[in-house]
Amino acid sequence: MSATRNKDIRYEVIRSRRATADIVIERDGRVLVRAPESIPDERIEDLVEAKRYWIYKNLAEWRDLNATRVLREYRNGEGFLYLGRSYRLLLVADQEEPLLLKNGRFCLRRDLADRGEIEAAKAAFRNYHIARGSERIRQRVDYYAPKIGVTPRDINVRELGNRWASCSPNGSLAFHWKCMMAPQTIIDYIVVHELCHFHHLDHTDAFWNEVDKVMPTYGERKEWLRVHGAGLDV
Rank of each mutant, 00 (worst) to 15 (best):
128 Y>K: 11
128 Y>R: 10
128 Y>E: 08
129 H>L: 15
129 H>Q: 11
130 I>S: 09
130 I>Y: 01
130 I>H: 01
132 R>K: 14
132 R>G: 05
133 G>S: 07
134 S>H: 05
134 S>N: 05
134 S>A: 11
134 S>D: 06
135 E>G: 11
135 E>Q: 13
135 E>W: 09
136 R>K: 08
136 R>A: 06
138 R>W: 06
138 R>K: 15
138 R>Y: 09
138 R>C: 08
139 Q>A: 08
140 R>Y: 06
140 R>A: 06
141 V>H: 00
142 D>R: 05
142 D>E: 15
143 Y>R: 15
144 Y>T: 02
144 Y>E: 13
144 Y>V: 13
145 A>R: 01
146 P>A: 14
146 P>Q: 09
146 P>V: 15
147 K>Q: 15
147 K>Y: 00
148 I>F: 07
148 I>A: 05
151 T>E: 04
151 T>V: 14
151 T>G: 05
152 P>E: 02
152 P>W: 04
152 P>A: 05
152 P>K: 02
152 P>D: 02
153 R>K: 12
153 R>H: 03
154 D>M: 01
154 D>K: 01
154 D>Q: 02
155 I>L: 13
155 I>P: 06
155 I>R: 02
155 I>S: 06
155 I>V: 15
156 N>T: 11
156 N>V: 04
156 N>Q: 11
157 V>P: 06
158 R>G: 10
159 E>L: 12
159 E>S: 14
159 E>H: 13
160 L>H: 00
160 L>P: 08
160 L>V: 10
160 L>A: 11
161 G>K: 11
162 N>W: 10
162 N>C: 14
162 N>F: 13
163 R>E: 09
163 R>N: 10
164 W>V: 01
165 A>P: 01
166 S>M: 14
166 S>K: 15
166 S>C: 14
167 C>Q: 02
168 S>V: 03
168 S>G: 02
168 S>P: 01
168 S>A: 03
168 S>M: 05
169 P>M: 11
169 P>T: 09
171 G>K: 04
171 G>E: 03
